[in-house]
Design a protein around this nucleic acid. Structure first.
Lengths: 321, 321
DNA sequence: CACGGCTCTCGACAAAAGTCAAATTTGGAT
DNA sequence: ATCCAAATTTGACTTTTGTCGAGAGCCGTG
């Protein structure tokens, strides 16, 4: 991709510095360049993923609460960000953790499905770079012509860029005005192939949306606040990959869902690792719905949300007995 | 393993510094400790593998020569350390590369077989630390009561320590004085289980030994220089995991081999990734034998050796046509 | 409870790394 | 061949990090 000589030099500098443990000035005279250049090369090496610095996320799964949640909710793994213990901004903490977890879950050669939303974009934004050329990042749902920077295609592309991976976008609106048109578009080869390829993913990254006037669906004009409220009455519990699910985690039977171009829930459930990240405490019910529907195998949440989930699971168990 | 509070602090410091990108002094007042302590914790975090710094080894496989070697020798991957281009000591360069490649090949949950020798021990010695608790490192061959620090059990244990993995040693001599005794010992449950477990490995790490008076087998008293010379006349081409192979990479039919307690070549060939590392140019013929015998799928060598291998492969091809 | 041995922590200094504007080189267009 | 714009490189400076010995806390022992 890039030109040879520059890449080569960056790699050599990174190799001598990180692998051999030389100092920057030692690297500088090995390569006959100034130390300042070495410093610059090393920054580039980190930014391009030639060197990887990763921190183990063990501590966040080792937590007793995380273990109990895994059991209670039958999830493969749970990470809990210890709220307000670390930084001023609590949501950043969750995103940083999610980004690390994500990078830990990615394997070479993987195909990764990425949905969209503020959470996903925040993760993409703080994610460190990696060198995973044979990875493919695919977009899970259609686009919204939003004024926001976290459009589905943006999320996909940004993550692909960070990973040095291939990004596979598809350009269809998330929601159309008639069911017939949506059906027709889904049958288009370009779109059909993209949607069919989703079930081949090894890993999915998404968050869950709330069914309220603050939802991106409302902000981006896909639905009006009134329509949203109506859907809520009809049993809408959450939004996943642009689609509305009920409390059981199944697709809600409504006109909106039939007009959407997105990854079917069945395709999502086939994906081996489904990483769900939830930042806001307000998304408690939506998250319960997603878990009930088996849309999540790996979960990253804040401590407060974790406690609520655990209380809920405990209460349900008690009621059942 | 270690005490809670210290581990926790190390992890927190590492998290804030490496994942969130705070400066050491910022971390220090977040945690209410001095910056000096933070620096110390961070060093410990690196030393225990809580943070991982790895450099991509791409450049060394991307090399045209490496690609051609892969084709010519039918190997899965070849890495070539550009000799004398980097550092004073050429063999260190190969070992550093080999260690990085090794860490790149290891996956969580893997079982790893490790042989012994100066090369393997050098690799273990410069290998950086990682956090791979569910990995198991098994010893491929019996021990030699050597005065050297690179005994089979040492190599296994050191690598296990670096990886924070489980080390599985077995305490049998590499070679016994009679075939009957060797047979009896191989039938011992402890030994039998260990040997049987070798074929379950996902990754093997070894080098190749030369058949000469400098061999460790001679230095450690397993064979006399005269015996070695005799074996050479009988067709011995190399030493792998303590066993003697002929030019075709098959076990040489000799008393010595029948008296050895080690991983059978068949078990080794079953292992998915067989990483062979060769430092010395003098090991050209032994390496050819190992490759001929399918004992190596991944190879790390110096540029000079790579050139010789390529020339040889070219010459053979020409002769054949 | 006083004592040594032990680890952990800190302040101060030294070393190394990061940064920036100026200077130089590079590559391309005319 | 000549020029200009963009990118690269550098020296000088600032900030950040690493290190070390001194001192503080801790614990089992005499």
């Amino acid at each position: 991709m890039a030109i040879r000589p520059a890449e080569q030099l960056i790699h050599k500098a990174a190799w001598l510095y990180y692998a051999h443990g030389l100092r920057q000035d030692e690297v500088a005279n090995q390569l006959n360049i100034s130390r300042a250049s070495v410093a610059m090369y090393l920054r580039k090496a980190r930014e391009t993923g030639i060197v990887n610095i990763s921190t183990s996320t063990q501590l966040f799964t080792d937590d007793v609460m995380a273990r109990r949640l895994e059991d209670a909710l039958k999830l493969d793994a749970v990470w809990i960000a210890p709220e307000n213990a670390y930084l001023a901004d609590p949501s950043t903490d969750i995103a940083v953790l999610a980004a690390s977890v994500f990078l830990e879950l990615v394997r070479k050669g993987d195909r990764i499905g990425v949905a969209w939303g503020r959470t996903v974009y925040t993760i993409a934004d703080i994610m460190s770079y990696a060198d995973l050329q044979d990875v493919t990042v695919v977009q899970l749902c259609g686009n919204l012509g939003a004024p926001y920077s976290y459009r589905p295609d943006q999320c996909t592309m940004e993550i692909a860029r960070r990973l040095n991976a291939k990004g596979l976008n598809f350009y269809a609106p998330l929601v159309l005005s008639t069911e017939a048109l949506a059906q027709g578009l889904r049958a288009e080869p370009v779109i059909r192939d993209q949607l069919a390829g989703i079930s081949d993913c090894d890993l999915a990254l998404y968050s869950i949306g709330a069914v309220d006037a603050d939802s991106h669906l409302v902000k981006c004009g896909a639905l009006t606040a009134a329509e949203m409220a109506a859907l809520r009455k009809e049993g809408a519990a959450g939004v996943i990959a642009g689609q509305i699910i009920d409390a059981g985690g199944e697709l809600l039977d409504c006109s909106y869902n039939r007009r959407v171009i997105s990854a079917g829930l069945a395709s999502l459930r086939v994906i081996g690792k489904r990483l769900m990240v939830v930042q806001e405490d307000s998304k408690f019910e939506p998250l319960l719905a997603a878990i009930a529907g088996g849309l999540c195998t790996h979960l990253v949440v804040g401590a407060h949300m974790a406690q609520r989930l655990l209380d809920h699971a405990g209460a349900s168990a008690e009621k059942a007995s």
